[in-house]
């Protein structure tokens, strides 16, 4: 993390970033995070439903089989 200069309360930007801008950035990032997380969650739900977790031993060997 960027060390804070003394006297600055972690907010108002010196380099042109305003407090509101930073807030909106964080909120946007949170929304983005939720979207990605929800996508991952739905993939997980789909995987459980299609029995992908039933055998976690065999599939890793399957790619080594040659298709003779």
């Amino acid at each position: 993390m960027r060390p804070l200069p003394a006297g600055e309360d972690g907010g108002a930007g010196e380099g042109g970033v305003s407090k509101t801008n930073m807030l909106w950035t964080v909120i946007a990032l949170i929304v983005l995070m939720f979207t990605v997380a929800l996508a991952a969650w739905f993939i997980f739900l789909w995987a459980v439903k299609t029995r992908q977790f039933d055998d976690i031993e065999r599939p890793k060997h399957r790619m080594l089989d040659d298709d003779s």
Partner: peptide, 25 residues
């Protein structure tokens, strides 16, 4: 899955504890 998201957010709050944080944020 949700705990992972929660941990990311919590780390922001923890950092705020040590370094100070904007109340709105």
């Amino acid at each position: 899955f949700f705990s992972m998201q929660l941990m990311l957010l919590s780390f922001g709050l923890y950092a705020g504890y040590f370094q100070g944080i904007d109340p709105q944020m």
